[in-house]
Nucleic acid binder design. Structure first.
Lengths: 145, 145
DNA sequence: TGTAATTCCTATCGAGTCAATAGAGATTTA
DNA sequence: TAAATCTCTATTGACTCGATAGGAATTACA
């Protein structure tokens, strides 16, 4: 399961992607629209800024903006930033690989083989879906309503 | 990531599937072969018995056996027993569905659509892989060594 | 130049989960 | 009757999670 933090982050970034102008959007406004507790959202957005996914403007009339195009921010990026690797075990993680401490032989581990398939399947979905695809679907639905 | 408990369970059930006779195998032996702390394994196996995946024989010369054919015990079954749903959110879980508390409208939620795809991709791998497929691969590898 | 508005940063909290251990009870076999 | 084994529940310490708090730093604007 995703953490609450990850769900909040997804909601917030979609709001920022929809806003999508040159002016920053303030935390308080994002919190309102996304339904996230304000102070908690501060921490979340801060972390995304440190990862280069968002950028910020400080001081009065400050706020947050996407640091890249919506199509270049995938669901996988967002989930990794809040919850860590997508893989089900460290030994099959691409972004945070390390050996399982108690592993006898990685090459013959049957569990690893299956978890590798699972990782590839999950990652291929989450890498292919981005803020752009989510916003586009939302706009299309709004037009047809 | 899977919990340590889930990894232990996978190892232990593979050991039981390899043993695969009519006589039960004792917890202490499974613990040794699978590399799992004995008392912790007790709890794990107990839970699998309650779920009908294992059965047990009490008293002297007792132990544990698979309650079904290895091909009918999937990786998904094992992971669900220890870690809960495979889905990334309650609203896309098949085995433990419930609405996200803060969800406005489930039909239009863009996050849900993506998590649904992810769940299907992951589950299709984990449902298709069983103790039988794991043991078969292991035996084939042993023959070719 | 000062003040209000905003992000930045760190600390803290309570509740819960995780991994592991402990030990007494129930059951079966020899 | 004794030994071996599974059964069950409690407990522990470390850590994580979700959330809140409050002051520091920065910027816009009157």
């Amino acid at each position: 399961m995703l953490s609450q933090k990850a769900r909040y982050a997804l909601h917030a970034l979609i709001v920022l992607a929809e806003h999508d102008g040159d002016e920053p959007m303030q935390i308080a406004d994002v919190a309102d629209e996304a339904g996230v507790p304000r102070k908690f959202l501060e921490q979340i957005l801060l972390e995304f800024r440190k990862r280069g996914i968002l950028r910020s403007q400080r001081g009065r009339a400050g706020g947050y903006l996407l640091a890249k195009a919506p199509k270049d921010i995938s669901f996988a990026d967002i989930i990794r930033a809040t919850d860590g690797p997508i893989a089900l075990a460290p030994c099959v993680s691409v972004t945070a690989y390390h050996r399982c401490e108690d592993c006898m032989d990685e090459r013959t581990c049957e569990i690893r083989k299956v978890l590798m398939l699972a990782r590839d399947a999950t990652a291929s979905v989450l890498e292919s879906q981005s803020l752009a695809t989510a916003v586009a679907r939302r706009k299309r639905a709004a037009r047809n309503a």
